[in-house]
């Protein structure tokens, strides 16, 4: 990945992350019903969280 591109990706990811963890998107998953044995809201928050972490990993560590 070109270094300039990597930096742009980080900014994009930050914006996407902020969106994932704010009102309209979170409301879509605001449900205590159980999915795979866990509340949908909890499942959403933790998987979005893990997704952001994974994306940072991808941006920093791949094809260095």
């Amino acid at each position: 990945m070109r270094s300039g591109a990597r930096e742009s990706w980080l900014v994009v990811l930050f914006v996407v992350g902020c969106l994932l963890f704010s009102y309209p998107l979170m409301e879509l998953f605001n449900d205590a019903a159980l999915l795979f044995g866990a509340p949908v809201s909890v499942l959403y928050l933790f998987s979005a969280w893990l997704g952001v972490i994974g994306a940072v990993w991808l941006i920093h560590e791949r094809r260095r």
Partner: peptide, 30 residues
């Protein structure tokens, strides 16, 4: 975890904890 969540969510007060709203945390505060 499945057992734990199933038991807990049977209680509506606990189930409310898994959602956003005035009694727990609203989006503004979040």
């Amino acid at each position: 975890p499945v057992d734990l969540f199933t038991q807990a969510m049977a209680d509506p007060d606990a189930a409310r904890l898994a959602t956003f709203g005035a009694e727990t945390i609203d989006y503004n505060q979040w």
